[in-house]
Design a protein around this nucleic acid. Structure first.
Lengths: 230, 230
DNA sequence: GCAAAAGTGTTATGAGTACACCCATGG
DNA sequence: CCATGGGTGTACTCATAACACTTTTGC
């Protein structure tokens, strides 16, 4: 006779945030309990009986970090028997993006437990969270190139150069500014605002805005967004 | 105090098989137990305590259908609370392909319980399996166009026209034979064999073979496979 | 007037697309 | 010799890629 199934279901989220110029960060929490007590990990936790997987992610993010996310999609489900040293836990991982508005929000709980870490400067992570992070990073890179999700890492209104730098940072490659702008504008999903931003040195920049409505309209036809990798 | 988590973990597989000319099929089983007794469903079942998710898929496919698959990848995890009317069950779905060799293998158990259904002629499915199937079909379409997975639906040696018809069937569009052949061969991952196949009427066709070794070599460099959608 | 970033157009190259006829076989 | 599917080349078009100077501001 087979044993009754004894597997727990958790969700974990890899949430990316972006600050200007090459600063791509991931939201981490410091674990307060064993196993891996006091080590850094992805926010997440067990799914409750009555909530959907997405609800579990939103709840855990709110409870553990206070961060509200602007984009969320399911990433991959990790289910190797020994990934949690105690019980068997399978983790449905998610991949999220936040705009800079929420970027600096402190945790509802103790802020020492929550931190944005630069992707280039990550600590060792608990469990197999390193693998999850890697999968999320790859997904971010490929998704950025064939869907316009990058806007979820920028303010609603942004100078064009922010977009350029975002793409260069995430895709880890140089981009020709003229060609990039030409192509990006050719999709017709970015509109120019009246505003001009003058920060730092140099010539002030027009601000642009992602036109969600237009994008949705186009998505229904045979519209194809793509920024090619080199 | 929160209730102890009471969620079961299952796997379900959408396995595609292909017969010549427009005949794309999916492997289904007829359920022998409630809920949805006697209705058609995707093969799958609960994950055992000590096995990985992939192992569970292989085991269930073997037990329920006797089919051995040539390609398998995780698809999506479905976890809405009410998707199973009795207990809460989350399903990690997989997407698989079989070559024609295994296509006609009968079930180890009663063959009446297992059947290949034409995708164009599917019965109503139990649970939310319709959604899973839909997701799998979309994945098949998009994956076919940017990764060479189609060969897992053909014999090891195949006439070029099989490949053409496979792409036309799955992508549901006409393809220019000359351009398709040119592009496909340009990747350098298909080799010509000495053999010639003469079936049916018309001029006999050279047989080709997918060169896995070459493909793996190329994958390490910046090789990019792509068959564009119209 | 210098430093810093924004803004802009043209040309060359290569990939994609459209397109039609001959070939080898079986009956 | 006819029907059936296999096999092949060229010209046109359009998208991508390469490339550098001028503009506006702050200091």
């Amino acid at each position: 006779m087979k044993l009754k199934q004894d597997i727990k279901v958790a969700v974990d989220a890899v949430v990316f945030g972006y600050e200007s110029k090459g600063k791509l960060s991931v939201l981490l929490i410091k674990r307060g309990v064993e196993p891996y007590k006091d080590e850094w990990a992805l926010p997440g936790g067990l799914v409750l009986n009555e909530e959907s997987l997405e609800e579990a992610v939103f709840r855990e993010l709110k409870e553990e970090t206070g961060v509200k996310i602007d984009y969320l999609e399911q990433l991959y489900t990790f289910g190797t028997p020994k990934r949690d040293p105690r019980n068997r836990v399978i983790s449905v991982s998610y991949f999220g993006l936040v705009k800079p508005n929420y970027f600096n929000i402190k945790a509802d709980t103790d802020a020492a437990d929550v931190k944005w870490y630069r992707l280039k400067d990550m600590p060792k992570l608990a469990f197999d969270h390193q693998d999850i992070l890697k999968a999320a990073h790859q997904r971010l890179q490929s998704k950025l190139s064939y869907e316009p999700i990058g806007f979820n890492l920028l303010n609603d209104e942004f100078p064009f150069s922010d977009l350029e730098h975002l793409y260069m940072t995430i895709l880890e490659q140089d981009i020709d500014r003229r060609n990039f702008r030409k192509k990006m504008l050719s999709f017709g999903i970015i509109e120019e605002t009246e505003k001009i931003e003058r920060i730092g040195s140099g010539r002030p920049a027009k601000l642009f805005r992602f036109n969600t409505k237009k994008f949705n309209e186009l998505s229904n036809s045979k519209f194809h967004f793509e920024i090619k990798l080199a």
